[in-house]
Design a protein around this nucleic acid. Sequence first.
DNA 1: ATAGTTACATACTTTAGGGTAAGTACTTGT
DNA 2: ACAAGTACTTACCCTAAAGTATGTAACTAT
Lengths: 121, 121
Amino acid sequence: MTAIKESSTIQENKQYALEKCPVTFVMEKIGGYWKPIILYHLSTGDKRYSELKRAIPAVTEKMLIQHLKQLEADGLVIREAKPVVPPFVTYKLSSAGTGLLPVIDAMAAWAFKVKDGIYNI
Amino acid sequence: MTAIKESSTIQENKQYALEKCPVTFVMEKIGGYWKPIILYHLSTGDKRYSELKRAIPAVTEKMLIQHLKQLEADGLVIREAKPVVPPFVTYKLSSAGTGLLPVIDAMAAWAFKVKDGIYNI
DNA sequence: ATAGTTACATACTTTAGGGTAAGTACTTGT
DNA sequence: ACAAGTACTTACCCTAAAGTATGTAACTAT
């Protein structure tokens, strides 16, 4: 989960932005590269780790657990492990994670509008 | 605007994600650190470059124009320059940029819910 | 005995983004 | 003559995030 060095300018700016800007607060939570994709896949129901891996073939295992751990630490997903061998671990959205779905939906709606040429980009 | 090296894995993955995931598409557009903040400030009306600078004191000039240029290139903001001295340049949201405001609002709504302890994070 | 499965962990490298600091063009005010 | 204001630009550095590669535990099936 990559230790963070105290007191670099970028961290101070993050502090500034986190307090001032709710949007930046959200970006902190879902800004990791694969996080939105993971959340999207979990939005249709809980998934095993290996299911996620297969569902998102381009992600490396390191990135996948790293982001899952961060999402878990941020309270957006819930991990459930059954003490069996081989391991059986599922991930699902928490209430806070579910609460993010409207954001995801709004993003997707905008993206589709752009792709459909609704805006004159 | 920082040249991008061709063919790194990260760029290939971006391609993958951009095509597969509308959310990642949006993140590409507003994922820059100061972009949401800039968009927020422009949401209340067009602003001069210097006004933005004063409104967001923590941002450096390099970051500010860099992001403004990217937002302009992505068709989210419109730059208007009057050929006078000293320069008079204003930035405003395009229709596509305005279309992003619901996304920003959804994010803000979620952030405030989190801060108000609505979710059990 | 050993290969396979699952869910990770960890050491090391690369890269994109952000930050610092300084400079530029052009004109107005003193 | 020189400082000040505006909207940038450019060269260089540093760091966090992402990627590569390999290893691990514990049990099951062959």
